[in-house]
């Protein structure tokens, strides 16, 4: 019952987005501001995390397969595919749920508590469209780009790790990078990127937009935003994998 109530609120918030903007240029400006805060400001963390995840994957895979007669260049192939299929979209979006999601929830929660949302509403602004819609479009645009960046840097991280740890020469890793390449995997990555971006931005906005209470409730909303989007991301990750593979 409670779940149905929340789900209903979530859906009606999403439907509220679809209304003609009062002023296109103001919406565009807000959209740009969000793209900056979601996209540009997340580049450092996404980059650092992807580099190290790629490095760890390479080192640990080398360790896992050392007892097998697996050709060395396989490491390059495994790192490439793991990054593209799983690590780049899923890991990046889980990190972004922690950073961007909690940020959206606390920003909207703060606006709700201090009556800024009411103030916009009184002026006649469609707040789901202006506040949530712009965040959603910004997320759908920037997060897939961040994921591509993460995939490239993850592969680079794997390369640096194997070369620095003297596991194999650079040429062998590169040979693995070219082995068994399946363009479909890139499409898979992009599908995941869009789905996850949608989930994390709408779930976070939902929790922030509907805050009631004070500062403590803002904190709770941002925690809920992180928890629920992480769960939904992994759930849909599995569904996508099950359906498309």
């Amino acid at each position: 019952m409670n779940f149905l109530h929340h789900f209903g609120t979530y859906v009606s918030l999403l439907l509220g987005i679809f209304s003609k903007p009062e002023n296109w240029s103001m919406y565009w400006k807000e959209n740009m501001r969000q793209m900056n805060s979601i996209g540009i400001e997340s580049i450092p963390i996404v980059a650092v995390v992807a580099l190290f995840i790629g490095a760890v994957t390479a080192v640990q895979f080398a360790y896992q397969v050392q007892d097998f007669a697996v050709p060395m260049y396989y490491i390059g192939y495994i790192v490439r595919d793991t990054m593209i299929i799983e690590m780049a979209p899923t890991m990046t979006c889980m990190i972004l749920a922690g950073k961007v999601g909690s940020n959206m929830a606390s920003e909207l929660g703060n606006m709700r508590i201090t009556e800024q949302i009411d103030a916009l509403e009184i002026m006649g602004v469609n707040t789901p469209g202006y506040l949530v819609g712009t965040k959603l479009t910004a997320a759908l645009f920037t997060i897939p780009l961040l994921i591509i960046l993460a995939a490239l840097l993850g592969i680079l991280g794997g390369l640096l790790a194997v070369v620095l740890s003297n596991i194999m020469p650079i040429g062998v890793y590169e040979r693995g990078l070219h082995a068994f390449f399946e363009p479909f995997n890139v499409r898979l990555m992009m599908i995941k990127g869009f789905v996850f971006a949608f989930i994390l931005s709408t779930v976070a906005c939902f929790h922030g937009y509907n805050v009631k209470g004070g500062a403590i409730q803002i904190g709770e909303a941002s925690t809920k935003a992180v928890v629920h989007s992480n769960i939904l991301i992994l759930l849909s990750d599995y569904i996508i994998a099950e359906v498309l593979l």
């Binding site: 103001m26 201090t114 009411d118 103030a119």
Partner: peptide, 28 residues
């Protein structure tokens, strides 16, 4: 045609004083 003054002022805290007052004009 409605203006409202809120208890806690409800100013947009990401904007300056000037941008706050400018906001309705920009929008409408």
């Amino acid at each position: 045609k409605i203006g409202m003054l809120f208890q806690g002022s409800a100013l947009f805290d990401s904007m300056t004083v000037e941008e706050n007052v400018l906001f309705p004009l920009n929008m409408f």
